[in-house]
Design a protein around this nucleic acid. Structure first.
Lengths: 186, 186
DNA sequence: GTCTATAGTTTGATAGAC
DNA sequence: GTCTATCAAACTATAGAC
């Protein structure tokens, strides 16, 4: 694995535990084993690092959604897999998804980073809306309401579920918070 | 209003916008109009300020729940008021509730602050569980499941709704994210 | 209670040798 | 690519005058 990737992995890890304002180049240097000045060779400024983090995160997430779409044509399967991906991202209650961790740091982010973050949020809503539209056709989800509304509600549920699981440091709380939604799936 | 209260108000304001790691004594000094050294007279360390913030927040929140309980004996009324209190706290999409803002900064908080935060979280779950137990008796909420599970799910919903509303800077997204739950109320 | 002055650390970032 | 050396700024915090 190249240094840049190693640094991105480390930065994503710590950013999802402590937020953008909660880590420094010194933290990354300690963990990766190089001097903090050397990090500037890969990411000239912390703002550049933030943009790279969000870009990679959005790209990886997009790939995961594509895999979900390929795996099943049934809306309930896709939504269950979506919830499951947020559960996995928790890493036992310690980490949040990058978009949740950065949501609180919005004031510290560059315009470019904010634009990437907003684009990721928008694409999540689009995928969810599309999937709830499918649900209202294939009938695999009970009591479906307006697709856009369902999309926003489910995003809030999985992000909130991560927060309560982190607050209690219990993955079980994520399951409790999402079970009501999952019970609507065929 | 005394200086201490003024500082707490200012700190709560900025902490709910930027998190614990996102503000400094310099920010408070600028806003309140005294020198940053003077703040140490009121709060010797930033850790003391964090504890004071959470204590006051938990106290105010507890009072608000008591008022809700006095206002109506019907579970659905109480839960609607609970959701509404999180909506008001949003301040148009700019602010999160303190527990959400601090959940991301957990690694930077003192043991004492974490204990206060966890106690607040636990008392929220207790109040919600009690209210969902009432709901299963008075029938004012449809499809009620296990009260503790409902409690965790609703907390996740309102906290997640705040996050998506902040991400989009639209209070309307809070409403979209909570409408599905509110539609279950009588 | 608030001030000035300052200590000691950490931060993000640059220059230049290797 | 990584290093040492260094910078200016920001950070939390303390001492002591008023």
């Amino acid at each position: 694995m190249d240094r840049r990737t190693e640094l991105l992995n480390c930065a994503e890890n710590v950013a999802r535990r402590r937020g953008y304002d909660g880590f420094s180049y010194a933290d990354l240097a300690d963990e990766v084993g190089i001097r903090k000045a050397s990090i500037h060779y890969h990411f000239p400024s912390k703002a550049d690092l933030a943009v790279a983090l969000i870009e990679r995160y959005a790209s990886t997430f997009g790939d995961a959604l594509a895999v979900i779409d390929e795996t099943s044509d049934i809306a309930s399967d896709r939504l269950a897999a979506y919830v499951q991906s947020y559960r996995r991202a928790l890493s036992g209650g310690a980490k949040l998804c990058l978009c949740v961790a950065f949501a609180i740091s919005r004031d510290s982010l560059s315009e470019e980073a904010l634009a990437e973050l907003d684009a990721f949020h928008a694409s999540s809503i689009i995928w969810l809306t599309k999937t709830f539209e499918l649900a209202s056709k294939d009938g695999s989800v009970t009591h479906t309401g307006d697709p856009t509304e369902e999309a926003t509600a489910l995003l809030a549920t999985v992000e909130g579920a991560q927060l309560v699981a982190r607050a209690a440091n219990k993955v079980a709380d994520f399951d409790q918070a999402t079970r009501l939604f999952l019970s609507r799936l065929a």
